[in-house]
Design a protein around this nucleic acid. Structure first.
Lengths: 250, 250
DNA sequence: GCGTGTGAATATTTTCACAGCA
DNA sequence: TGCTGTGAAAATATTCACACGC
Protein backbone atom coordinates (compact mmCIF):
# COMPACT_ATOMS: atom_id res chain seq x y z
CA UNK A 1 0.00 0.00 0.00
CA UNK A 2 2.96 2.20 0.47
CA UNK A 3 4.07 3.67 -2.78
CA UNK A 4 7.72 2.96 -2.10
CA UNK A 5 9.95 -0.03 -1.68
CA UNK A 6 12.60 0.18 0.93
CA UNK A 7 15.74 -1.27 2.27
CA UNK A 8 18.31 -3.75 1.09
CA UNK A 9 20.25 -3.42 -2.09
CA UNK A 10 18.85 -5.47 -4.99
CA UNK A 11 19.48 -9.17 -5.31
CA UNK A 12 19.57 -9.60 -1.59
CA UNK A 13 23.25 -8.77 -1.38
CA UNK A 14 23.47 -7.92 2.29
CA UNK A 15 25.46 -8.81 5.30
CA UNK A 16 28.28 -6.54 4.22
CA UNK A 17 27.85 -3.41 6.34
CA UNK A 18 25.54 -5.47 8.44
CA UNK A 19 25.46 -3.41 11.61
CA UNK A 20 22.35 -1.63 10.53
CA UNK A 21 20.52 0.64 12.91
CA UNK A 22 17.37 -1.19 11.90
CA UNK A 23 16.29 -4.70 11.52
CA UNK A 24 14.63 -4.30 8.20
CA UNK A 25 11.04 -4.65 9.09
CA UNK A 26 8.53 -5.89 6.54
CA UNK A 27 6.47 -3.03 5.17
CA UNK A 28 3.28 -4.73 6.34
CA UNK A 29 4.60 -4.84 9.88
CA UNK A 30 5.56 -1.18 9.87
CA UNK A 31 2.07 -0.24 8.79
CA UNK A 32 0.64 -2.03 11.81
CA UNK A 33 3.02 -0.74 14.47
CA UNK A 34 1.17 2.57 14.89
CA UNK A 35 -2.04 0.68 15.54
CA UNK A 36 -0.33 -1.44 18.20
CA UNK A 37 1.02 1.73 19.71
CA UNK A 38 -2.40 3.29 19.94
CA UNK A 39 -3.83 0.15 21.50
CA UNK A 40 -0.98 0.05 24.03
CA UNK A 41 -1.58 3.64 25.05
CA UNK A 42 -5.24 2.82 25.64
CA UNK A 43 -4.33 -0.22 27.69
CA UNK A 44 -1.80 1.75 29.67
CA UNK A 45 -4.32 4.44 30.48
CA UNK A 46 -6.72 1.73 31.55
CA UNK A 47 -4.14 0.66 34.10
CA UNK A 48 -2.69 -2.45 32.49
CA UNK A 49 0.94 -3.21 33.25
CA UNK A 50 1.25 -6.18 30.98
CA UNK A 51 -0.79 -7.55 28.12
CA UNK A 52 -0.82 -10.86 26.29
CA UNK A 53 -0.46 -11.12 22.54
CA UNK A 54 -4.08 -12.21 22.52
CA UNK A 55 -5.21 -9.12 24.42
CA UNK A 56 -3.16 -6.64 22.46
CA UNK A 57 -4.16 -8.26 19.19
CA UNK A 58 -7.82 -7.86 20.10
CA UNK A 59 -7.32 -4.22 21.00
CA UNK A 60 -5.57 -3.59 17.72
CA UNK A 61 -7.93 -5.58 15.53
CA UNK A 62 -5.55 -8.25 14.27
CA UNK A 63 -4.98 -11.87 15.19
CA UNK A 64 -2.45 -12.85 17.78
CA UNK A 65 -0.17 -14.84 15.52
CA UNK A 66 0.34 -11.85 13.31
CA UNK A 67 0.95 -9.62 16.26
CA UNK A 68 3.57 -11.94 17.74
CA UNK A 69 5.33 -12.26 14.42
CA UNK A 70 5.33 -8.50 14.00
CA UNK A 71 6.73 -7.87 17.46
CA UNK A 72 9.31 -10.60 17.08
CA UNK A 73 10.88 -8.52 14.32
CA UNK A 74 11.63 -5.81 16.87
CA UNK A 75 13.33 -8.24 19.21
CA UNK A 76 12.17 -10.06 22.30
CA UNK A 77 10.20 -7.78 24.53
CA UNK A 78 7.72 -10.26 25.93
CA UNK A 79 7.91 -12.71 28.79
CA UNK A 80 6.77 -16.26 28.15
CA UNK A 81 3.84 -17.22 30.27
CA UNK A 82 3.15 -13.57 31.06
CA UNK A 83 2.93 -11.25 28.09
CA UNK A 84 4.37 -7.91 27.13
CA UNK A 85 5.26 -5.07 29.47
CA UNK A 86 3.06 -2.25 28.26
CA UNK A 87 5.41 0.62 29.05
CA UNK A 88 8.46 -1.12 27.67
CA UNK A 89 6.72 -2.03 24.46
CA UNK A 90 5.43 1.51 23.98
CA UNK A 91 8.95 2.84 24.33
CA UNK A 92 10.29 0.28 21.95
CA UNK A 93 7.73 0.92 19.23
CA UNK A 94 8.05 4.67 19.61
CA UNK A 95 11.77 4.32 19.22
CA UNK A 96 11.47 2.24 16.08
CA UNK A 97 8.95 4.64 14.57
CA UNK A 98 11.22 7.54 15.37
CA UNK A 99 8.59 9.18 17.54
CA UNK A 100 11.03 9.97 20.32
CA UNK A 101 11.85 13.08 18.37
CA UNK A 102 8.89 15.30 17.59
CA UNK A 103 8.77 15.97 13.87
CA UNK A 104 7.86 19.26 12.29
CA UNK A 105 5.05 19.13 9.77
CA UNK A 106 3.84 21.73 7.33
CA UNK A 107 0.47 21.78 5.71
CA UNK A 108 -0.13 23.16 2.24
CA UNK A 109 -3.60 24.03 1.01
CA UNK A 110 -6.18 25.43 3.40
CA UNK A 111 -9.43 24.60 1.79
CA UNK A 112 -12.05 22.54 3.51
CA UNK A 113 -9.83 19.62 4.27
CA UNK A 114 -6.73 21.65 5.07
CA UNK A 115 -8.67 23.59 7.67
CA UNK A 116 -9.74 20.40 9.35
CA UNK A 117 -6.25 18.96 9.29
CA UNK A 118 -4.81 22.14 10.79
CA UNK A 119 -7.08 21.64 13.76
CA UNK A 120 -6.73 17.90 14.08
CA UNK A 121 -5.69 17.01 17.62
CA UNK A 122 -4.44 13.60 16.67
CA UNK A 123 -1.31 15.08 15.15
CA UNK A 124 -0.12 16.93 18.21
CA UNK A 125 -0.99 14.09 20.54
CA UNK A 126 0.87 11.51 18.53
CA UNK A 127 4.29 12.99 18.00
CA UNK A 128 3.84 15.66 15.38
CA UNK A 129 3.70 19.41 15.40
CA UNK A 130 2.31 21.49 12.61
CA UNK A 131 4.68 24.42 12.39
CA UNK A 132 3.55 26.17 9.24
CA UNK A 133 0.55 26.60 6.96
CA UNK A 134 0.68 27.62 3.31
CA UNK A 135 -1.79 28.55 0.63
CA UNK A 136 -1.59 30.05 -2.83
CA UNK A 137 -4.65 32.23 -2.28
CA UNK A 138 -3.56 35.75 -1.29
CA UNK A 139 -6.84 36.32 0.47
CA UNK A 140 -6.08 33.50 2.88
CA UNK A 141 -2.54 34.60 3.66
CA UNK A 142 -2.33 36.19 7.08
CA UNK A 143 -5.46 34.48 8.31
CA UNK A 144 -4.93 32.68 11.61
CA UNK A 145 -6.08 29.09 11.86
CA UNK A 146 -5.85 27.33 15.17
CA UNK A 147 -3.18 29.75 16.26
CA UNK A 148 -0.99 29.62 13.16
CA UNK A 149 -0.77 32.27 10.48
CA UNK A 150 -1.23 31.18 6.88
CA UNK A 151 1.77 32.08 4.73
CA UNK A 152 2.03 32.43 1.01
CA UNK A 153 3.21 29.38 -0.80
CA UNK A 154 6.09 31.33 -2.27
CA UNK A 155 7.67 31.25 1.19
CA UNK A 156 7.40 27.48 1.44
CA UNK A 157 10.94 26.73 0.31
CA UNK A 158 12.59 29.16 2.69
CA UNK A 159 10.42 28.33 5.69
CA UNK A 160 10.73 24.59 5.17
CA UNK A 161 14.46 24.87 5.55
CA UNK A 162 14.32 27.32 8.46
CA UNK A 163 11.83 25.27 10.42
CA UNK A 164 13.48 21.96 9.58
CA UNK A 165 10.25 20.55 8.20
CA UNK A 166 10.38 16.76 8.15
CA UNK A 167 7.01 16.03 6.60
CA UNK A 168 4.89 17.97 4.15
CA UNK A 169 1.15 17.44 3.97
CA UNK A 170 -0.48 18.36 0.67
CA UNK A 171 -4.17 19.22 0.80
CA UNK A 172 -4.39 21.30 -2.36
CA UNK A 173 -6.51 20.60 -5.42
CA UNK A 174 -4.89 17.96 -7.61
CA UNK A 175 -3.75 20.44 -10.21
CA UNK A 176 -1.49 22.20 -7.74
CA UNK A 177 -0.14 19.16 -5.93
CA UNK A 178 2.81 18.31 -8.17
CA UNK A 179 4.17 21.84 -8.04
CA UNK A 180 3.90 21.84 -4.27
CA UNK A 181 5.65 18.49 -4.08
CA UNK A 182 8.47 19.86 -6.23
CA UNK A 183 8.97 22.79 -3.90
CA UNK A 184 8.94 20.52 -0.86
CA UNK A 185 11.49 18.24 -2.42
CA UNK A 186 13.72 21.18 -3.35
CA UNK A 187 13.56 22.31 0.25
CA UNK A 188 14.86 18.93 1.33
CA UNK A 189 11.63 17.42 2.61
CA UNK A 190 11.76 13.66 2.13
CA UNK A 191 8.34 12.59 3.36
CA UNK A 192 5.02 13.68 1.90
CA UNK A 193 1.48 12.86 2.84
CA UNK A 194 -0.72 13.55 -0.16
CA UNK A 195 -4.46 14.12 0.10
CA UNK A 196 -4.80 15.35 -3.45
CA UNK A 197 -6.27 12.74 -5.79
CA UNK A 198 -3.33 12.50 -8.15
CA UNK A 199 -0.02 10.73 -8.52
CA UNK A 200 3.07 12.62 -7.47
CA UNK A 201 6.38 12.18 -9.16
CA UNK A 202 9.30 12.47 -6.77
CA UNK A 203 12.92 11.31 -6.49
CA UNK A 204 13.49 7.83 -5.13
CA UNK A 205 14.68 9.02 -1.75
CA UNK A 206 11.37 10.72 -1.05
CA UNK A 207 8.50 8.77 0.49
CA UNK A 208 4.98 9.56 -0.53
CA UNK A 209 1.88 8.22 1.14
CA UNK A 210 -1.47 8.95 -0.30
CA UNK A 211 -4.86 9.22 1.33
CA UNK A 212 -7.82 9.42 -1.00
CA UNK A 213 -11.19 9.52 0.66
CA UNK A 214 -13.13 8.78 -2.49
CA UNK A 215 -11.04 5.68 -3.12
CA UNK A 216 -11.96 4.31 0.28
CA UNK A 217 -15.62 4.78 -0.51
CA UNK A 218 -15.21 3.15 -3.89
CA UNK A 219 -13.64 0.10 -2.32
CA UNK A 220 -16.59 -0.13 0.05
CA UNK A 221 -18.89 0.32 -2.91
CA UNK A 222 -17.33 -2.71 -4.56
CA UNK A 223 -18.03 -4.82 -1.52
CA UNK A 224 -21.60 -3.54 -1.35
CA UNK A 225 -22.03 -4.41 -4.97
CA UNK A 226 -20.63 -7.86 -4.43
CA UNK A 227 -22.66 -8.54 -1.32
CA UNK A 228 -25.80 -7.52 -3.18
CA UNK A 229 -25.02 -9.87 -6.03
CA UNK A 230 -24.34 -12.73 -3.62
CA UNK A 231 -27.59 -12.46 -1.73
CA UNK A 232 -29.36 -12.53 -5.07
CA UNK A 233 -27.81 -15.91 -5.78
CA UNK A 234 -29.58 -19.29 -5.57
CA UNK A 235 -27.28 -21.03 -3.06
CA UNK A 236 -26.37 -17.69 -1.50
CA UNK A 237 -24.52 -18.01 1.77
CA UNK A 238 -27.10 -16.25 3.92
CA UNK A 239 -25.60 -12.86 3.16
CA UNK A 240 -22.66 -13.35 5.50
CA UNK A 241 -19.21 -14.00 4.20
CA UNK A 242 -16.30 -15.26 6.21
CA UNK A 243 -13.88 -13.68 8.62
CA UNK A 244 -13.63 -10.27 10.17
CA UNK A 245 -11.97 -8.22 12.80
CA UNK A 246 -10.98 -10.27 15.79
CA UNK A 247 -11.33 -7.28 18.01
CA UNK A 248 -13.70 -6.88 20.87
CA UNK A 249 -14.51 -3.19 21.11
CA UNK A 250 -12.41 -1.38 23.69
CA UNK B 1 -5.27 -3.06 4.52
CA UNK B 2 -8.87 -3.94 4.41
CA UNK B 3 -10.00 -5.30 7.70
CA UNK B 4 -12.08 -8.05 6.13
CA UNK B 5 -11.53 -11.18 4.18
CA UNK B 6 -13.91 -11.89 1.38
CA UNK B 7 -15.25 -14.36 -1.02
CA UNK B 8 -15.18 -18.11 -1.48
CA UNK B 9 -16.10 -20.59 1.17
CA UNK B 10 -13.14 -21.97 3.10
CA UNK B 11 -10.95 -24.74 1.73
CA UNK B 12 -11.50 -23.59 -1.81
CA UNK B 13 -14.68 -25.57 -2.19
CA UNK B 14 -16.15 -23.75 -5.13
CA UNK B 15 -17.48 -24.44 -8.54
CA UNK B 16 -20.83 -25.52 -7.14
CA UNK B 17 -23.08 -22.49 -7.62
CA UNK B 18 -20.31 -21.23 -9.84
CA UNK B 19 -22.22 -18.70 -11.94
CA UNK B 20 -21.10 -15.88 -9.77
CA UNK B 21 -21.83 -12.31 -10.69
CA UNK B 22 -18.19 -11.55 -9.96
CA UNK B 23 -14.89 -12.95 -10.85
CA UNK B 24 -13.44 -12.92 -7.40
CA UNK B 25 -10.90 -10.23 -7.69
CA UNK B 26 -7.84 -10.19 -5.46
CA UNK B 27 -8.20 -7.62 -2.69
CA UNK B 28 -5.04 -5.87 -3.84
CA UNK B 29 -6.51 -5.44 -7.30
CA UNK B 30 -9.75 -4.02 -5.98
CA UNK B 31 -7.83 -1.43 -4.00
CA UNK B 32 -6.14 -0.24 -7.17
CA UNK B 33 -9.15 -0.10 -9.46
CA UNK B 34 -10.32 3.29 -8.16
CA UNK B 35 -6.91 4.74 -8.94
CA UNK B 36 -7.07 3.38 -12.48
CA UNK B 37 -10.49 4.87 -12.80
CA UNK B 38 -9.31 8.29 -11.74
CA UNK B 39 -6.40 8.12 -14.18
CA UNK B 40 -8.74 7.05 -16.97
CA UNK B 41 -11.05 9.97 -16.33
CA UNK B 42 -8.09 12.34 -16.53
CA UNK B 43 -6.93 10.77 -19.77
CA UNK B 44 -10.41 10.90 -21.21
CA UNK B 45 -10.74 14.58 -20.39
CA UNK B 46 -7.38 15.16 -22.00
CA UNK B 47 -8.85 13.75 -25.19
CA UNK B 48 -7.34 10.26 -25.26
CA UNK B 49 -9.42 7.55 -26.94
CA UNK B 50 -7.11 4.71 -26.14
CA UNK B 51 -4.22 4.20 -23.78
CA UNK B 52 -1.52 1.56 -23.48
CA UNK B 53 -0.90 -0.35 -20.28
CA UNK B 54 2.34 1.58 -20.07
CA UNK B 55 0.57 4.92 -20.31
CA UNK B 56 -2.21 4.11 -17.91
CA UNK B 57 0.21 2.56 -15.45
CA UNK B 58 2.25 5.75 -15.44
CA UNK B 59 -0.83 7.87 -14.86
CA UNK B 60 -1.88 5.65 -11.98
CA UNK B 61 1.54 5.30 -10.40
CA UNK B 62 2.03 1.56 -10.80
CA UNK B 63 4.05 -0.57 -13.19
CA UNK B 64 2.53 -1.88 -16.37
CA UNK B 65 2.80 -5.57 -15.57
CA UNK B 66 0.73 -5.10 -12.47
CA UNK B 67 -1.80 -3.04 -14.32
CA UNK B 68 -2.22 -5.63 -17.06
CA UNK B 69 -2.58 -8.41 -14.54
CA UNK B 70 -5.17 -6.41 -12.64
CA UNK B 71 -7.19 -5.63 -15.74
CA UNK B 72 -6.96 -9.20 -16.97
CA UNK B 73 -9.00 -10.22 -13.92
CA UNK B 74 -11.88 -8.13 -15.24
CA UNK B 75 -11.76 -9.80 -18.63
CA UNK B 76 -10.23 -8.78 -21.92
CA UNK B 77 -10.90 -5.17 -22.64
CA UNK B 78 -7.71 -4.28 -24.45
CA UNK B 79 -6.64 -4.67 -28.06
CA UNK B 80 -3.22 -6.17 -28.73
CA UNK B 81 -0.93 -3.79 -30.48
CA UNK B 82 -3.19 -0.87 -29.58
CA UNK B 83 -4.14 -0.59 -25.94
CA UNK B 84 -7.31 -0.05 -23.97
CA UNK B 85 -10.35 1.90 -25.08
CA UNK B 86 -10.63 4.60 -22.45
CA UNK B 87 -14.41 4.90 -22.42
CA UNK B 88 -15.01 1.18 -22.44
CA UNK B 89 -12.58 0.58 -19.61
CA UNK B 90 -14.12 3.34 -17.52
CA UNK B 91 -17.53 1.76 -17.93
CA UNK B 92 -16.19 -1.63 -17.07
CA UNK B 93 -14.40 -0.55 -13.91
CA UNK B 94 -17.36 1.52 -12.80
CA UNK B 95 -19.58 -1.46 -13.26
CA UNK B 96 -17.32 -3.71 -11.22
CA UNK B 97 -17.03 -1.16 -8.44
CA UNK B 98 -20.78 -0.76 -8.41
CA UNK B 99 -20.55 2.92 -9.22
CA UNK B 100 -23.27 2.77 -11.83
CA UNK B 101 -25.69 3.19 -8.97
CA UNK B 102 -25.12 6.27 -6.86
CA UNK B 103 -24.82 5.23 -3.21
CA UNK B 104 -26.24 7.14 -0.32
CA UNK B 105 -23.78 8.04 2.42
CA UNK B 106 -24.37 9.42 5.87
CA UNK B 107 -21.81 11.19 7.97
CA UNK B 108 -21.76 11.01 11.73
CA UNK B 109 -19.79 13.50 13.80
CA UNK B 110 -19.47 17.09 12.69
CA UNK B 111 -16.36 18.27 14.40
CA UNK B 112 -13.43 19.62 12.50
CA UNK B 113 -13.01 16.66 10.25
CA UNK B 114 -16.71 15.98 9.80
CA UNK B 115 -17.23 19.51 8.59
CA UNK B 116 -14.55 19.10 5.99
CA UNK B 117 -15.89 15.76 4.83
CA UNK B 118 -19.39 17.20 4.52
CA UNK B 119 -18.04 19.70 2.05
CA UNK B 120 -15.68 17.43 0.18
CA UNK B 121 -16.40 17.61 -3.55
CA UNK B 122 -14.66 14.35 -4.28
CA UNK B 123 -17.58 12.37 -2.90
CA UNK B 124 -20.25 13.83 -5.13
CA UNK B 125 -18.06 13.75 -8.21
CA UNK B 126 -17.12 10.13 -7.78
CA UNK B 127 -20.39 8.35 -7.32
CA UNK B 128 -21.52 9.14 -3.80
CA UNK B 129 -24.08 11.43 -2.29
CA UNK B 130 -24.11 12.51 1.32
CA UNK B 131 -27.76 12.42 2.25
CA UNK B 132 -27.66 12.96 6.01
CA UNK B 133 -25.50 14.43 8.76
CA UNK B 134 -25.67 13.45 12.43
CA UNK B 135 -24.15 14.67 15.64
CA UNK B 136 -24.73 14.02 19.33
CA UNK B 137 -24.27 17.67 20.24
CA UNK B 138 -27.68 19.34 20.58
CA UNK B 139 -26.19 22.72 19.81
CA UNK B 140 -25.14 21.50 16.39
CA UNK B 141 -28.47 19.95 15.51
CA UNK B 142 -30.36 22.09 13.04
CA UNK B 143 -27.24 23.81 11.80
CA UNK B 144 -26.92 23.70 8.03
CA UNK B 145 -23.65 22.54 6.57
CA UNK B 146 -23.14 22.68 2.84
CA UNK B 147 -26.87 22.63 2.35
CA UNK B 148 -27.72 19.77 4.69
CA UNK B 149 -29.26 20.06 8.14
CA UNK B 150 -27.52 18.32 11.01
CA UNK B 151 -29.81 15.84 12.75
CA UNK B 152 -29.57 14.36 16.17
CA UNK B 153 -27.89 11.03 16.38
CA UNK B 154 -30.99 9.53 17.94
CA UNK B 155 -32.61 9.75 14.52
CA UNK B 156 -29.82 7.86 12.84
CA UNK B 157 -31.50 4.47 12.88
CA UNK B 158 -34.76 5.67 11.42
CA UNK B 159 -33.23 7.93 8.80
CA UNK B 160 -30.69 5.33 7.72
CA UNK B 161 -33.50 3.00 6.80
CA UNK B 162 -35.66 5.69 5.19
CA UNK B 163 -32.87 7.06 3.08
CA UNK B 164 -31.49 3.64 2.18
CA UNK B 165 -28.06 4.55 3.45
CA UNK B 166 -25.46 2.24 1.95
CA UNK B 167 -22.35 3.58 3.64
CA UNK B 168 -21.85 5.23 7.01
CA UNK B 169 -18.90 7.49 7.63
CA UNK B 170 -17.83 7.86 11.26
CA UNK B 171 -15.96 11.03 12.17
CA UNK B 172 -16.71 11.11 15.87
CA UNK B 173 -14.21 10.98 18.72
CA UNK B 174 -13.04 7.42 19.33
CA UNK B 175 -15.12 7.00 22.47
CA UNK B 176 -18.35 7.40 20.55
CA UNK B 177 -17.45 5.40 17.46
CA UNK B 178 -18.45 1.92 18.59
CA UNK B 179 -21.91 3.05 19.65
CA UNK B 180 -22.40 4.77 16.32
CA UNK B 181 -21.26 1.66 14.49
CA UNK B 182 -23.75 -0.41 16.45
CA UNK B 183 -26.59 1.87 15.45
CA UNK B 184 -25.51 1.82 11.82
CA UNK B 185 -25.35 -1.96 11.84
CA UNK B 186 -28.79 -2.21 13.44
CA UNK B 187 -30.12 0.02 10.70
CA UNK B 188 -28.82 -2.43 8.14
CA UNK B 189 -25.78 -0.49 6.97
CA UNK B 190 -23.12 -2.96 5.85
CA UNK B 191 -20.24 -0.65 4.94
CA UNK B 192 -18.49 1.74 7.28
CA UNK B 193 -15.65 4.15 6.75
CA UNK B 194 -14.12 4.91 10.11
CA UNK B 195 -12.01 7.99 10.77
CA UNK B 196 -12.00 7.51 14.53
CA UNK B 197 -8.73 6.12 15.85
CA UNK B 198 -10.15 2.93 17.33
CA UNK B 199 -11.07 -0.59 16.34
CA UNK B 200 -14.71 -1.28 15.61
CA UNK B 201 -16.34 -4.55 16.36
CA UNK B 202 -18.97 -5.49 13.78
CA UNK B 203 -20.67 -8.61 12.42
CA UNK B 204 -18.84 -10.48 9.70
CA UNK B 205 -21.11 -9.27 6.94
CA UNK B 206 -20.18 -5.66 7.58
CA UNK B 207 -17.13 -4.14 5.94
CA UNK B 208 -15.10 -1.59 7.80
CA UNK B 209 -12.35 0.49 6.33
CA UNK B 210 -10.32 2.73 8.51
CA UNK B 211 -8.49 5.94 7.77
CA UNK B 212 -6.21 7.22 10.50
CA UNK B 213 -4.29 10.33 9.65
CA UNK B 214 -1.86 10.04 12.53
CA UNK B 215 -0.97 6.51 11.47
CA UNK B 216 0.02 7.72 8.04
CA UNK B 217 2.32 10.28 9.58
CA UNK B 218 3.82 7.69 11.89
CA UNK B 219 4.63 5.44 8.97
CA UNK B 220 6.37 8.35 7.28
CA UNK B 221 8.15 9.05 10.53
CA UNK B 222 9.53 5.53 10.52
CA UNK B 223 10.96 6.03 7.06
CA UNK B 224 12.45 9.37 8.06
CA UNK B 225 14.03 7.71 11.04
CA UNK B 226 15.43 4.95 8.92
CA UNK B 227 16.72 7.26 6.22
CA UNK B 228 18.47 9.31 8.87
CA UNK B 229 20.11 6.23 10.34
CA UNK B 230 21.23 5.05 6.91
CA UNK B 231 22.95 8.25 5.91
CA UNK B 232 24.83 8.11 9.19
CA UNK B 233 26.24 4.71 8.24
CA UNK B 234 29.79 4.05 7.05
CA UNK B 235 28.99 2.42 3.71
CA UNK B 236 25.67 4.27 3.50
CA UNK B 237 24.09 4.11 0.09
CA UNK B 238 24.11 7.84 -0.68
CA UNK B 239 20.83 8.39 1.09
CA UNK B 240 18.74 7.03 -1.75
CA UNK B 241 17.05 3.67 -1.51
CA UNK B 242 15.61 1.73 -4.37
CA UNK B 243 12.38 1.94 -6.31
CA UNK B 244 9.61 4.48 -6.32
CA UNK B 245 6.56 5.57 -8.19
CA UNK B 246 6.87 4.98 -11.87
CA UNK B 247 4.50 7.78 -12.61
CA UNK B 248 5.26 10.90 -14.49
CA UNK B 249 3.08 13.59 -13.01
CA UNK B 250 0.13 14.46 -15.21
C1' DG C 1 5.85 -4.72 -34.94
C1' DC C 2 3.48 -3.54 -30.90
C1' DG C 3 1.33 -4.26 -26.82
C1' DT C 4 -2.07 -7.29 -24.44
C1' DG C 5 -2.91 -11.43 -21.81
C1' DT C 6 -0.91 -15.01 -19.08
C1' DG C 7 1.75 -19.04 -17.22
C1' DA C 8 5.68 -19.57 -14.48
C1' DA C 9 8.99 -17.77 -11.09
C1' DT C 10 9.76 -14.92 -7.21
C1' DA C 11 8.74 -12.30 -3.26
C1' DT C 12 5.96 -11.09 0.46
C1' DT C 13 2.54 -11.85 3.97
C1' DT C 14 -0.29 -14.63 6.74
C1' DT C 15 -1.31 -18.60 9.29
C1' DC C 16 -0.28 -22.84 11.67
C1' DA C 17 1.52 -25.44 15.24
C1' DC C 18 4.68 -26.36 18.58
C1' DA C 19 9.29 -26.05 21.05
C1' DG C 20 11.01 -23.68 24.88
C1' DC C 21 11.16 -20.56 28.70
C1' DA C 22 9.14 -18.20 32.88
C1' DT D 1 0.73 -24.37 32.94
C1' DG D 2 0.52 -20.33 29.93
C1' DC D 3 2.18 -17.61 26.54
C1' DT D 4 6.03 -16.04 23.66
C1' DG D 5 8.98 -16.71 19.73
C1' DT D 6 9.66 -19.04 15.47
C1' DG D 7 10.43 -22.45 11.81
C1' DA D 8 7.62 -24.43 8.22
C1' DA D 9 3.45 -24.37 5.30
C1' DA D 10 -0.03 -21.95 2.87
C1' DA D 11 -1.93 -18.11 0.75
C1' DT D 12 -1.35 -13.62 -1.71
C1' DA D 13 0.87 -10.52 -4.44
C1' DT D 14 4.32 -8.99 -7.72
C1' DT D 15 7.36 -9.44 -11.47
C1' DC D 16 9.21 -11.68 -15.50
C1' DA D 17 9.18 -12.98 -20.11
C1' DC D 18 7.05 -14.40 -24.03
C1' DA D 19 3.23 -16.41 -26.96
C1' DC D 20 -0.40 -14.57 -29.46
C1' DG D 21 -3.50 -11.55 -32.04
C1' DC D 22 -4.26 -7.14 -34.19
Amino acid sequence: MSQQRHGSTPGHVRGDDAVQAFPDLPEATIARLPEYLRALHNLGEAGADTVSSEGLAAAAGVNSAKLRKDLSHLGSYGTRGVGYDVTLLIEQIEYVLGLDQRRAVCLVGLGNLGHALAGYDGFASRGFKIVALFDADESKVGEHIHGLAVRHIADLGRVAVEEKIAIGVIATPPGAAQAVADVLVDAGVTSILNFAPCVLSVPSNVDVRKVDLAIELQILSFHEHRKASLTALPGGRSAATAGNQEAVGS
